[in-house]
Amino acid sequence: MNIVKVDVFQARLPLIEPFIISYVRLDDMPTIFTRIELDNGIVGWGEAVPDQNVTGETWHSTYDVIVHELAPLLIGKSPFQIDAIHQQWDAQILGSPSAKAALDIALYDAMGKCANLPLYELLGGRAHDTLMVPRVISIKTPQEMAEDAKRYVAEGYKHIKIKVGTDAKADIARICQVRDAIGEDAYLRVDANQGWSRTEALQVIEATQHCAVEWYEQPVKAHDYRTMRHIRESVSSAIMIDEGVQSMHDLTEVIREEAADMLNIKLMKAGGIYRALGLASLAESANMPCQVGSMVESAIATMAGAHLSMSRTIIETNEMVGPLMFTQDVAGVPFDGEQLLLTKAPGLGIEVDETYVSSITVQRACIE
């Protein structure tokens, strides 16, 4: 069961509408798919969705790192050599977490198929009864965001996340109008994506205390742990860290500084499932609840995050929202309303449409 070939696809996925957060607007989603093939014919799929403002990688650099630095190291290896493979990748190149995630996910998909088990069974078994997925609303006018939120709640969604972080006054209006639109029974999460200063963060949080926000995510710059701690000490609301944690070292510092109540784990920041498991374990030792977030990923990375979410008790929430945001995806994801369903199909549990992958690919490489 050794790897004999790695295919890499640089592609662009079409979005239903532009995705706008505090630091970027995306009219489509640049992504990279990986496909590993074993000598027994089993295939594993992975994905990278780099973010140059978060992971320090671009779409082009990630493709080049996978093709020229990481994928060649897999030829002849078993997908089950996951620890040794990560050690070799880290010795080959510093960082590049989404590039590593693309191949890591493919390795885990192949492992599940080799074992004829759904991936969550390999990661720890079923730790939750269901996976509830929110609807995410990108930055618009307060009225437009409120209208979107009201529509989603009418469709049956009870968990709404809104993107903010452009202007404190406008953000207060966004939060308040969305809460008014969704009523008291729906849950509301707020993500500033590093968009506020300390003063702005305190101003917004204090002005929206009556809005029953579940948590405020990454209010200030990624590694400004001191300011995160000050905000956390100054408000009664929960503070989640996201961009500020990529590695075990980062999380160790966050725990030491008492800078956050919660952790958002993303496979693209962590370097894949293997490293994400380490973050979840460290967070558990500090009694820090986690969620698995998304970089707006296709069905491939979405299902990887879903299996990870299902397998660990400390991972209490997830935001596997990518497939809800594309006009067409590379595979079907089994949603039932706001529930993401995991079947007993092996690996990631999806059938990738290779014809569609090829149709949206702008550059492809094969490593044998």
Rank of each mutant, 00 (worst) to 15 (best):
P97T: 08
N193C: 01
I105W: 06
A91M: 02
T166F: 11
E121F: 05
A149Y: 02
G195Y: 12
Q203M: 13
H128L: 05
N116P: 01
A115H: 11
D148C: 02
Y108K: 14
Q177P: 05
A207R: 04
C211F: 02
H210T: 02
K100M: 03
V133N: 09
C211I: 04
H159G: 05
S138Y: 03
V220Q: 03
T141L: 03
G112A: 02
A99I: 07
L94F: 06
R179T: 10
A181H: 01
Y187F: 11
D185Q: 09
K140Y: 01
H128Y: 07
V133L: 10
R189Q: 03
E184N: 10
R151I: 12
S197G: 01
K221N: 04
Y157N: 09
N116H: 11
L131N: 12
G112W: 11
I160N: 03
K161F: 06
Y187I: 13
D167G: 02
T141D: 00
K150G: 07
G124P: 02
H210W: 12
I175K: 12
A149C: 08
D180A: 15
T199P: 02
L188E: 01
E184I: 00
R189A: 00
S197H: 00
Q209E: 10
A212R: 13
A102V: 08
K169Q: 12
V178W: 00
A173P: 01
Y152D: 14
H223N: 08
K169R: 14
L131R: 13
K158E: 09
G195R: 15
T141F: 05
R198K: 14
D104N: 04
C211L: 06
R198M: 05
I172S: 12
E214A: 00
G165E: 03
G124S: 10
G156N: 10
Y187T: 07
